[in-house]
């Protein structure tokens, strides 16, 4: 498999805090890669740098052979990298279907159109997408009144509208009931396998991480401390130390 996303030597400081310290990794096409680590490990910073919301201090990000290090979020999206956010961000005054329609309008460069009836544009394609994520019946509902689990699905449909080749998800199941989590991730993985789409995600729920990732990357204090198959990472002593903490006072049982 070829390398789809290549991150080389990424650094980012905020004042005296090092949020990202020489982070390098590759994601092969169609690979599902999970990034885990304790609070403040630099997961969100890493995602924001890849997504174009933050500019790295040093390093390079290449996606499908193109340098996207300095690209803003709009350019990153156009290059075929879709994302969903930690705090769900849907357009609350839009209906479920319209949330996807607006992404399709943007994809077709219709954002300056002052004339067409937006409600009718790309209606069928949007409906197909929300059907696919299982909320087709809510097409006409306002996103402002939807349950959280359904909002997550709307967000997924928005991100999928541009047919991304890589989907980046920051804590896709945070705030969901345990039963819904697995269902959502099963859906995402199934769709990704079918479309040949890669996935890069962070997650706190370890069942989700080890159940859905091909490979796991562990961050701590801005550095990559381990990466490899789920089993290898699970067996890594350093990773266990980060998660359980020894802090120089180890009880022999820890």
């Amino acid at each position: 498999m070829s390398v789809q996303l290549s991150v080389q030597g990424l650094c980012k400081r905020f004042g005296g805090v090092v949020a990202s310290d020489d982070v390098s990794f590759d994601l092969k096409s169609e690979e599902h890669l999970a990034v885990i680590g304790p609070n403040g490990a630099g997961k969100s910073t890493l995602f924001k740098m890849i997504g174009g919301q933050l500019r790295p201090d040093a390093g390079q990000i290449r996606f499908d052979g193109h340098d996207i290090t300095k690209a803003g979020p709009r350019a990153v999206w156009r290059s075929g990298l879709g994302q969903t956010f930690q705090i769900t961000a849907t357009f609350s005054s839009f209906t479920v279907r319209e949330n996807v329609q607006i992404a399709l309008m943007s994809l077709n460069r219709q954002t300056r159109n002052l004339w067409a009836a937006a409600h009718e544009l790309h209606r069928d394609e949007a409906q197909a997408l929300i059907d696919a994520v299982g909320i087709g019946d809510f097409a006409e509902r306002s996103c402002g009144v939807l349950a959280y689990g359904d909002l997550k699905r709307v967000e997924l449909a928005i991100a999928l509208a541009s047919r991304p080749r890589l989907l980046m998800m920051d804590e896709p199941t945070a705030g969901m009931a345990p039963a819904e989590r697995r269902a959502l991730m099963d859906l995402v993985t199934k769709m990704a396998r079918r479309e040949g789409m890669g996935i890069l995600f962070t997650e706190h729920d370890m069942d989700i991480v080890f159940g859905h990732a091909d490979r796991v990357l562990v961050l701590d204090q801005g550095c990559i401390v381990a990466q490899g198959s789920p089993d290898a990472v699970r067996a890594d002593a350093k990773v266990q130390e980060i998660y359980l903490g020894t802090g120089g006072m180890a009880d022999e049982r820890v």
Binding site: G72, W77, F91, S92, S93, F94, S106, T111
Partner: peptide
């Protein structure tokens, strides 16, 4: 009711999300 009006509302409801689907 036109796409431009939707774009404006999208920028109001969720600017980060709007930027992430290519809306300036």
């Amino acid at each position: 009711y036109a796409p431009f009006g939707y774009v404006l509302r999208a920028g109001r409801d969720g600017p980060a999300r709007a930027e992430a689907i290519g809306i300036n």
